[in-house]
């Protein structure tokens, strides 16, 4: 047997001939709901956050290697493209963090009814966007202030 699911997909008609049981309907038959997007977005954000963390290792390893390597990394962090990449990393991290907290609440039995989940979804989006914007603006602001202080 290639796949154990085969055993469950094969059924018998009343006359004894074999038939393939219908599969459960796939995604396209359902009306779009925010909760289904937030669910898959959490998985995607987890993967993106992991990829960003792998790139983030460049920063700490360059700092360990010395000033020359570190200035190379600073070229990336000072570049608008690199900054956009880091903002995306921050967004993925913040959303995975927020959705993770929701999962921990659900696991403990809180906010797990259909009504509560649908109420919390837009709040999670708002918290994610707000926190990400505040973090990015704050970090960029601190970095600019620090480099200005050094220049003067």
């Amino acid at each position: 047997m290639q796949d154990v699911r085969d055993a469950l997909y094969v059924g018998q008609r009343s006359d004894g001939t074999l038939t393939r049981r219908p599969m459960s309907p796939h995604l396209q038959v359902y009306r779009f709901r925010l909760s289904m997007f937030l669910s898959i977005a959490n998985r995607a954000a987890g993967v993106a956050a992991a990829g960003g963390s792998a790139l983030g290792l460049c920063w700490i390893s360059a700092a360990a290697k010395g000033p020359k390597s570190f200035s190379k990394v600073q070229k990336v962090t000072g570049n608008p493209l690199g900054q956009m990449l880091m903002a995306g990393w921050a967004l993925a991290l913040v959303y995975h963090f927020v959705a993770g907290l929701r999962h921990l609440a659900w696991d403990s039995g809180y906010r797990f009814s259909k009504k509560e989940i649908n109420e919390d979804g837009p709040v999670a989006v708002g918290v994610t966007v707000g926190t990400t914007l505040a973090l990015v603006a704050g970090i960029v602001g601190v970095a600019i202030c620090r480099s200005r202080k050094k220049a003067s």
Binding site: I60, A63, A64, G66, P67, F70, S71, L93, F97, L135, G138, I139, V140, V142, A143, I144, C145, R146, S147, K150
Partner: peptide, 23 residues
């Protein structure tokens, strides 16, 4: 993660010697 965010604020725009001292 909360601790790390605070450190990022402390180290934003820092030079390599500053990061080395922190680390």
């Amino acid at each position: 993660s909360g601790w790390f965010v605070i450190q990022v604020f402390r180290l934003a725009g820092a030079s390599q010697p500053e990061v080395a001292k922190w680390g």
